[in-house]
Design a protein around this nucleic acid. Sequence first.
DNA 1: ATCTTGCGTTGAATATTATTCATTATTTTA
DNA 2: TAAAATAATGAATAATATTCAACGCAAGAT
Lengths: 158, 158
Amino acid sequence: MTNPKELHLDQTDLSILRLMQDNARISNADIARELEMAPSGVLERVKKLEQKEVILQYTTRLNPLALHQSLLAFVFIKSADGMGCNDTAKLLAEVPEVQEVHHVAGEDCYLVKIRTSDSASLMYLMRNSLSKIPNILSTRTTIVLETVKEQQQLVITK
Amino acid sequence: MTNPKELHLDQTDLSILRLMQDNARISNADIARELEMAPSGVLERVKKLEQKEVILQYTTRLNPLALHQSLLAFVFIKSADGMGCNDTAKLLAEVPEVQEVHHVAGEDCYLVKIRTSDSASLMYLMRNSLSKIPNILSTRTTIVLETVKEQQQLVITK
DNA sequence: ATCTTGCGTTGAATATTATTCATTATTTTA
DNA sequence: TAAAATAATGAATAATATTCAACGCAAGAT
């Protein structure tokens, strides 16, 4: 999967990825026009990028407010997991409201991003889902008051 | 934009959003088949969802490692911005490597998510881009060692 | 209860796109 | 340099997107 040879991306690949990262619903025909190549060639490359897992997913970014998910929180979680063991992380990852689980350096073991409808449902989630996970020693929650930017777009250098 | 009437989503809307959140490149025809309605009807609704800004963007999630962006960091930034003023946040948001900027409760003002190729380029970014931003008083950086889960998918309740 | 207005849906027609595949071009490797 | 592997093209077909007129249905007005 992470072969040096297999994973080499040329300028055309990067251009395709740039276009698709901005708009996953762009047509192969439009990409082909933009890059002045045949649509079938684009398709070929896209399939390969999917197969090589350079492309992980095509997703639609939704407005959290429209879906009544206005609370965003980051929770630092200390766990009794030994080094190299991430059982706690796996269990955290299974919770649908948990969008991200990162193993971080420093005294806190995990940093978790959680999105719920409100503070009550966050409390509910923590009391029910999180507290059921063994090895969790403590949590420290940081509530987001306002999100100024939120995207996952990578910087694709020329 | 946030009207109670205009923003009401029915079961059909939610089903469409669920499908599109999982796969932004799903065809209207497939959605139509799944929900047993006409493709033109699906198109109609999707357009409306875009227009109402329930759908924010169709994006392709790329493998950060394939694009040599293996360093992820969260940086807490204290700023001298007064209450209600988010000039610092806006400047932070302009940096391409900065994926997220959140205004958080508590003593630290902003939580920023940054993705770069390595620690050297993070240092470079902080020394150049960030230090140019006025009002920044201090930063506290948390390096991610391993990411177990990372997605923005919202929980769409039935 | 009926009318009316507005909104969402359908279905058919057309434009556009996706996808396949044989052929040709290009690059890589021996 | 020749052979082999890899990638691109273009044409043909299948599938999809998109438009739009007609229809149906529901909420509110009369």
